[in-house]
Amino acid sequence: MSKPKLDPNAKYAKSHEWVRVEDGLAVVGISDAAQEMLSDVVFVDLPEVGEEVEAGDAVAVVESVKAAEDVYAPVSGTIVAVNTALEDTPEQVNDDPYDAWFFKIRPVSQEELQKELDALMSPEEYAEYVEQEGH
């Protein structure tokens, strides 16, 4: 298996979500390693806009033919946008996982957000983590 791709501008959770800060919002998707493990993604179940989430909450589900995995919020806040395009073309998650964002979270405050981001892994740390996990 080829080495999983990384987005150098993102931080990573142990449950394989990536998060990028864009315009003050936390944008969340699943990593290349995660989509590779799932194989062909067939459906993405997205949260409702307006939902309040805590870091670590299961807020979305990503399904392949043989598996279904929860997607956790890596940071706390309010869901302000969901990528409904994934409902019709879930294959985007396989094709370009760092473009296929799932949802955007407005953080409680930028300080909170920074604290939560600091607890996540850098691309290098995540790469090592994936390798150790044996994926």
């Binding site: 062909d40 067939v42 459906f43 399904e63 033919v65 879930p90 294959e91």
Partner: peptide
């Protein structure tokens, strides 16, 4: 039938 496309069926 031969092997079926289950990915397409679910997508």
């Amino acid at each position: 039938v031969r092997r079926l496309d289950e990915v397409q069926a679910a997508r």
